[in-house]
């Protein structure tokens, strides 16, 4: 170690890349995966579909990160951060797949950092303001139940990459749902105060749930090809799950999911998305030459 600069000396003892994993070329989430498109699969459509599923995960992940340093207890903070990290991982894989499928060669960062709000395809539920802890529980109860139902079916997708991403996600989503079910029961069947907070949160979230089940023409087309899932096909199953959980938590049985039309999937967003993306994208856009 050279004595003149201890930091340089310490750094020199390691061969940079190995220590920091910067600039290694190993950043691609799908490095080394066979990415050939199966015959009969429309790559452009598949790319947009991967953005829909990836953007739900990316935006909800960013929302959940707002709990870090601000959760009721450290244990819950770690749990919410873990859920956010799982969703971020799913987003990375899906967005990487999108860039291969559409032939553009864009990587996950190009999708995450260099698209404007009108090019994001997440549902409004994922971009809605964070709210209180009960709101996070209500949001994740619906979202993880929906995503688990969709990913379980996608594990049989005609696109083997999407199928593998979904099969991996199923284990993670099952944990997310398990976590929020436990909190739904604890809050709903807890004190009159916690019951009321959760009841309010479910009522606030409910108007945003219908969009999850509105079929985009592209989802219908990909479902017909055996690549994607028509979200309308999981409506009953998800409603049954959510009803069972809320009822067990002594909350009123929910209304049907509201009938809604496609909005976020077509890039039509609420005013809440732009500030969220501003925070997410700021560093990457200010330093476009940076690598990490």
């Amino acid at each position: 170690m050279s004595g003149e600069n201890i930091f340089t000396g310490l750094t020199e003892e390691h061969d940079g890349d190995a220590r920091w994993a910067f600039g290694t070329g190993f950043t691609e989430a799908l490095a080394g995966v066979d990415t050939t498109l199966p015959a009969g699969v429309d790559g452009a459509d598949l790319a947009v579909y991967c953005q829909m599923l990836g953007d739900d995960a990316l935006v909800q992940s960013q929302r959940l990160v707002q709990w870090v340093t601000d959760a009721p207890e450290l244990e819950e903070e770690v749990a919410l951060a873990n859920i956010a990290l799982d969703l971020l991982g799913q987003a990375r894989l899906l967005l990487a797949r999108a860039g291969q499928a559409d032939g553009s060669g864009r990587d996950e960062d190009a999708f995450a950092y260099h698209r404007d709000p009108e090019h994001f395809r997440n549902v409004h539920l994922t971009e809605a303001p964070r709210g209180d802890f009960a709101r996070a529980v209500a949001t994740l109860l619906v979202l993880s139940s929906w995503r688990l139902a969709v990913f379980t079916r996608l594990a049989d997708s005609a696109d083997p990459v999407l199928a593998a991403i979904a099969a991996k996600g199923v284990n993670e989503l099952a944990y997310h749902r398990e976590y929020v079910v436990a909190w739904t029961l604890r809050l709903g069947d807890g004190t009159p105060y916690s019951h009321e907070r959760l009841r309010t949160a479910v009522a606030d979230v409910w108007p945003l749930t219908g969009e999850l089940f509105a079929t985009h023409p592209l989802e219908a087309a990909l479902a017909a090809q055996g690549v994607g899932v028509d979200p309308a096909s999981v409506r009953d199953e998800v409603h049954e799950v959510v009803t069972r959980v809320l009822t067990a938590a002594t909350l009123p049985a929910p209304e049907p999911f509201p009938g809604q039309t496609v909005a976020g999937r077509d890039g039509e967003h609420s005013a809440h998305l732009a500030p969220l993306l501003e925070e997410l994208q700021r560093v990457a856009r200010e330093h476009p030459e940076a690598t990490w």
């Binding site: 190995a18 290694t24 490095a31 080394g32 593998a164 099969a167």
Partner: peptide
């Protein structure tokens, strides 16, 4: 990935590709 790459190179392989296997999960 970096650690595997380095260990395999140290074992005498000059060309190394570390690939991701997603399935089975």
């Amino acid at each position: 990935r970096v650690d595997v790459d380095r260990a395999v190179r140290a074992a005498g392989f000059d060309r190394v590709e570390v690939r991701t296997a997603l399935s089975p999960a």
